[in-house]
């Protein structure tokens, strides 16, 4: 099915959930309210005309610096259907303070690790996730580095994050 028809069908089924949609964009997308995400995803998976069985990617991002006065976080879900060979993009915008979105791990097992990655790097909480731990960074890491306001501290995990000049190193070693 074409993107425009997919989006229309989704809007007909969930008139209150769809906040915004754009079929003219390079990747046509639908923005839905965070609270309705689980219902929307279950519909996308189970409806015979949709049957989106593959969650291609969960992309978290920080919108800070994009527009004046907007500092939200966003999660973008790319769904694909092996049966009908069509794609849909679902967007969820979340407030910077306390970004919480329902987890899709119960519907799509692959969401488990992908959501953990978004939590790890962007600090987005996935409500109902079975095991929301850091995945790429160590447990004792502070902050979420893909946020635009994240700054590298002078030390990380006990190591200095800056290095003196190479010449200084040679000089020091000669003194020893």
């Amino acid at each position: 099915m074409e993107a425009a028809r997919l989006i229309d069908r989704l809007r007909d089924s969930f008139p209150d959930a769809v906040i915004e949609s754009d079929v003219e964009a390079i990747d046509p997308y639908v923005k839905v309210a965070p609270a309705t995400l689980t219902d929307v995803a279950a519909f996308l998976r189970d409806d015979p005309e949709m049957s989106f069985d593959f969650l291609m990617a969960v992309t978290g991002m920080d919108l800070m610096g994009l527009e004046e006065g907007v500092d939200d976080l966003r999660v973008e879900y790319h769904f694909y259907s092996y049966k009908h060979r069509h794609t849909i993009v679902i967007r969820v915008d979340l407030p910077r303070e306390g970004p919480v979105v329902p987890s899709l791990a119960g519907l799509y097992p692959t969401a488990d690790w992908n959501e953990r990655e978004a939590w790890d790097l962007l600090g987005i909480r996935f409500d109902g996730h079975p095991d929301l731990r850091r995945i790429l960074l160590p447990e004792e890491w502070e902050g979420h580095p893909l946020r635009k306001d994240w700054k590298e501290g002078p030390t990380a995990l006990g190591f200095e994050t800056t290095r003196g000049s190479f010449l200084d190193l040679i000089r020091d070693s000669k003194q020893l």
Partner: peptide, 28 residues
């Protein structure tokens, strides 16, 4: 099926790049 996502903020640098790779899913 290697998935690459790019987003622009109107400058010469990308705003966000996301690469979802096969090994990540396979490991899970």
């Amino acid at each position: 099926d290697l998935f690459t996502y790019v987003m622009s903020n109107g400058t010469v640098n990308p705003h966000r790049i996301h690469i979802r790779t096969g090994s990540f899913n396979a490991f899970s």
